[in-house]
Design a protein around this nucleic acid. Structure first.
Lengths: 186, 186
DNA sequence: TAGGCGAGGTCAGCGCCTGACATCGAACCC
DNA sequence: GGGTTCGATGTCAGGCGCTGACCTCGCCTA
């Protein structure tokens, strides 16, 4: 058999990213995305909640991987150590897709609406980690604060990782930022 | 002269909040807001960028007050101390408007789109504080991390302050959360 | 082979938001 | 006073995002 044939959802996501990169998010209509994918506008909205969501398809996978890591941290770990365990699988998850991440980032970073969506994804991540810390017996507000600090590190570090010219791997950058945070907060 | 007559902008903001509380954000159309304010839909959009923005009219004032506080921190303050100075004027700014804040919060907290907008306001705040820290000679990533931690504390604490039953003042809660953060990170 | 089911198409319509142009009253200038 | 400018608002037309309701078609399975 030949090359893999992407399904409707995959074609839509691909077409959307391509068009957003080519001519900008605002200058792209959903009808155009659907047309390039060989489908109709209505079908786009059956797969994605809105025009922005198509750029955030991987977020549930990311969340699952973070939550699993926190849950799997040794029982002896402090709340902050457990939360920070979420950062360990990040290299695994992202290092192979750096150019995809960069294309995606180039679209999001110039559009306030897309930044909003990104931020709420990060907030959801934060809540998920806080909830996992609760299950480990961590009380409030320690759980929320540790989760917040962890996702703060993730966000800042991800930005550095997609920046042009940066070649270090994500895991290394994560460990570096985390050390910085500990040094700064006192 | 009689009671103060609110201008168009003020009437629109008031009508919007009232309607959002009465029947929910999604169930309110901009045309209805305008009608209650005695104006037209077009005029609403001349005053506010979109249907959500009307709930965030005070954000530039908040940002200014935080930035000023950071800039005014003593030169001897550490980066985190300087950033955390942004939290001190919060009681001044909010304690007199707690019921307004609660009404507003009751609308935002049940609507993802509105949470998105709130989050980007917080992110803008974070950047403004980081920039102010830069002017104080703080380098990256320390400035971003300190700003992030500070706004994280602000957000978590504000949520507690508007929670039903909470009677303590904002300043007190802020100091408490900040102490927690220091204890938790490390 | 009939029926279920999942992916997709078609159509109609609401509501958000914008550009272009018109109106009107207050302030300002001569 | 009369003209002028200017800011706030109204009117109109229209694009686009998004949704509900209903239909088609191919595939799987009892």
């Amino acid at each position: 058999m030949g090359r893999w044939e992407p399904n409707g959802r995959g074609r839509l996501a691909q077409a959307a990213l391509d068009l957003y990169v080519e001519r900008g998010f605002d200058q792209t209509t959903v009808a155009e995305i659907a047309e390039r994918a060989g489908l109709t506008e209505r079908t786009f909205f059956r797969h994605f909640a809105d025009k922005r969501e198509v750029l955030f398809d991987g977020s549930s996978l990311l969340q699952q991987s973070m939550v699993d890591a926190v849950a799997a941290a040794p029982a002896s770990a402090s709340p902050m150590e457990a939360a920070a365990a979420a950062l360990e699988p990040m290299g695994e998850l992202f290092d192979q897709r750096r150019d995809f991440a960069r294309r995606r980032h180039s679209v999001i970073s110039v559009n306030p609406e897309l930044k909003e969506r990104e931020l709420i994804k990060l907030a959801t991540l934060t809540e998920a980690i806080a909830a996992t810390l609760h299950e480990r017996g961590v009380a409030e507000p320690a759980a929320s604060l540790a989760a917040q600090a962890t996702i703060g590190v993730f966000h800042v570090t991800f930005q550095r990782w997609v920046a042009p010219g940066e070649t270090r791997e994500l895991g290394e950058l994560m460990r570096e930022s985390l050390a910085e945070l500990k040094a700064v907060v006192r």
